[in-house]
């Protein structure tokens, strides 16, 4: 697709540029500024160079939060992607059922994130929650406030509840775009159900799946509100992922230098991932023509 070259198009982009520059570039400069300075209060700052970055990169606390976050993201992907595909394949294809399923599935996506946290905080409680109560009645010792494993179980099932529909909706969009002729051809060839999935449906879902994987990875990598409401990062530090750790550092302890350095390292990781995402996407689209 050859679009005409028109430098005047810059005028159309200008409002976006100014707005996003205001809300992204200026704050980011503030962070850079803090990351290279130290203070003893009184608004007096002096140059600290890369000291904060070195401290942060060597800090076991940062390594642990990063490791926890990577494990969390990995578990999320392993559960949500296959589950999302199965749900998309199971969805009805016509009639009122489609609308009902779409609306109900999208419902968790539109609940404010801390309310999602509240819902699961209540739902998992042994005394007043259905999940906690049921597990206890089954003789399972479950307490997400005390036991790190239970806390992990709770935030993972919460995230599955919250976001699997996104994967399913994306896959569904890919599935309904497959022309009927493909299926007819498969029927003539006597293809099995698995062969239809493997050679027709899965390749057609490739693009949306890629989007789903990368979005889910990045959003779970930035997760803050939901686990914070449920566990507050605890018990101990067992569910303290990167964002929770960063907010503790910046707002809780007001360690501006280390917090800013951590922000930048965090942001660079995300930037790297976005770049991989963008490159894979654009290459894919170019190759898919």
């Amino acid at each position: 697709m050859d679009k005409p070259i028109n430098q005047k198009a810059w005028f159309l982009v200008l409002p976006v540029l100014l707005l996003v520059a205001f809300s992204a570039v200026i704050p980011l400069m503030t962070v850079v500024n803090y990351s290279v300075q130290d203070t003893f209060g009184n608004n007096e700052f002096f140059w600290a160079g890369t000291a904060w970055f070195e401290e942060m990169l060597r800090s076991p606390r940062f390594h642990q939060a990063l490791a926890r976050n990577l494990i969390f993201s990995a578990i999320i992907l392993v559960i949500q992607i296959p589950l999302g595909i199965v749900v998309a394949l199971s969805m009805p294809r016509k009639g009122v059922g489609v609308s009902i399923c779409l609306v109900l599935m999208a419902l968790p996506l539109l609940i404010p994130w801390n309310v999602v946290g509240t819902i699961w905080q209540v739902f998992g409680r042994v005394d007043i929650g259905l999940l906690g109560h049921t597990l206890e009645a089954l003789g399972i010792d479950y307490n997400y406030v005390r036991d790190p494993l239970d806390a992990w179980f709770t935030i993972i099932i919460m995230d599955v509840w919250h976001w699997t529909s996104l994967v399913a909706l994306l896959c569904y969009a890919g599935l309904v775009s497959i022309p009927e002729a493909y299926y007819q051809a498969a029927r003539i060839d006597g293809a099995s159900r698995w062969a239809v999935f493997r050679y027709i449906q899965l390749p057609k879902m490739n693009r949306v799946l890629l989007i789903a994987v990368l979005l889910r990875f990045m959003d779970s990598f930035m997760i803050y509100t939901e686990p914070f409401v449920v566990t507050g990062g605890g018990p101990g530090n067992s569910t303290t992922v990167l964002s929770i750790d960063l907010v503790k550092l910046a707002v809780g302890q007001f360690d501006l230098g280390p917090a800013a350095a951590m922000s930048i390292i965090y942001f660079l990781i995300v930037l790297l991932l976005s770049w991989v995402f963008y490159t894979v996407m654009t290459n894919y689209e170019r190759g898919g023509q």
């Binding site: 199965v86 749900v87 394949l89 199971s90 969805m91 009805p92 294809r93 016509k94 399923c101 109900l104 599935m105 419902l107 968790p108 609940i111 509240t118 819902i119 699961w120 209540v122 739902f123 929650g129 259905l130 999940l131 509840w161 699997t164 529909s165 599935l175 309904v176 497959i178 009927e180 299926y183 239809v196």
Partner: peptide, 26 residues
């Protein structure tokens, strides 16, 4: 479009129940 999975209705029922239970509890 192609029909959904054979046990699709069962999967959907379980999945939607899973989605709605916590909301119902609230």
């Amino acid at each position: 479009v192609r029909k959904p999975l054979h046990l699709g209705w069962l999967v959907m029922t379980i999945y939607l129940t899973f989605l709605l239970l916590p909301i119902y509890w609230l």
